[in-house]
């Protein structure tokens, strides 16, 4: 048994599985990062985050033929900002105002379903092929085959999260976001329009999901239902990593992505979701605030 495990560690297949696990995990991480952005400012989150990803991918698919994959990214980003603002205005703002514990949960789920139906009517129910922007020929590192698009996913996800961190740490508007997360009333006393900050965090959260959508679309199928499972798994990731930690959700994403691909290969694809969900249950019972979380999650 032990020798078998050891032999696997040096086999290219194992490392190839790790590589695709990392790519999938980064997508989970980015979506979970989006959950964390809105949770920080408002203690609420968008349960339609998977649908934001799906809409981003489909808008990208529609726009790309007119420009190029790379020029389409800003269009998708702008669309994400708009879509996130709509979710906050329609689904969340009122619930926060009346301090409703459950209103925003139902409202964001409802909006997610509406977005999915909308997408089915516009783009159809069939899965579509997203033309990849770069070669689909795998690159080989010492016998380990990696898809170029997987590298783009990892790089894109990291760049996006670093840019947001940089914005939060360096710009006065980013500091206003952190201040709102720290203490909303005190941020108001600084002259910060904290309602607008919350709208902005929703917009930013949907932007990251929409970009994640166009990053992941070339390696998966693109269609109205592509976001549902991703959104749910990313939610598990956010709980595992801790909703208060941007770093934690990335680690959580990687853990889930890697366990999925390994289980799928060594056991059965039918069981690939099980280890991640077992980990979720373990985290909830042992450290409910998440592996890297600072405080207990009260509202979810």
């Amino acid at each position: 048994m032990f020798e078998y495990l050891l032999s696997q560690l040096v086999s290219p297949v194992f490392w190839q599985l790790i590589a695709s696990g990392v790519a999938v995990g980064m997508i989970y991480g980015v979506i979970a990062f989006g959950y964390q952005l809105t949770f920080a400012t408002s203690k609420t989150l968008n349960f339609g985050q998977g649908e934001a990803l799906m809409l981003g991918a489909l808008v990208g698919l529609t726009v790309a033929p007119y420009t190029s994959y790379w020029l389409m990214l800003p269009v998708v980003a702008a669309f994400g900002l708009l879509q996130g603002s709509v979710v906050e205005r329609l689904g969340v703002r009122q619930a926060i105002k009346i301090k409703s514990e459950a209103g925003w949960i139902m409202a964001t789920i409802a909006l997610g379903i509406i977005f999915k139906n909308l997408a089915e009517n516009i783009w159809g129910r069939d899965d579509l092929k997203f033309p990849p922007p770069i070669s689909e020929k795998p690159l080989s590192f010492h016998g380990v085959n990696v898809l170029p698009m997987e590298l783009v996913i990892v790089a894109g996800a990291i760049i996006m999260m670093l840019l947001i961190e940089l914005f939060n740490r360096r710009s006065i508007y980013g500091k206003a976001v952190v201040a709102t997360s720290n203490d909303r009333d005190a941020a108001g006393l600084m002259g910060i329009n904290t309602g607008l900050v919350i709208t902005f965090s929703y917009a930013l959260s949907s932007l990251t999901a929409a970009i994640a959508g166009v990053l992941v679309a070339p390696v998966t199928l693109t269609g109205a239902t592509m976001g549902s499972a991703l959104g749910l798994k990313a939610f598990a990731v956010a709980i595992i990593g801790g909703l208060s930690s941007g770093f934690g959700v990335v680690v959580g994403g990687l853990i889930l992505g890697i366990t999925e691909t390994l289980t799928g290969y060594y056991f059965s694809t039918g069981y690939k979701d099980v280890p991640g969900l077992l980990l979720l249950l373990a985290v909830l019972s042992i450290k409910p605030s998440g592996l890297f979380g600072k405080s207990a999650i009260k509202k979810v």
Binding site: I172, K175, A176, V178, A179, S181, N182, D183, D185, A186, A187, G188, L189, M190, G191, I192, N193, T194
Partner: peptide, 30 residues
């Protein structure tokens, strides 16, 4: 609150309410 602050009312509130995860310099800047 933010509109009142922008008209020039500063309030050092009960319990201090500084922003704990930001630096002293960032608190002053805010």
């Amino acid at each position: 609150t933010h509109q009142i602050t922008r008209r020039g009312m500063a309030h050092s509130p009960e319990g201090r309410r500084v922003f704990p995860t930001l630096t002293v310099a960032d608190n002053l800047e805010l």
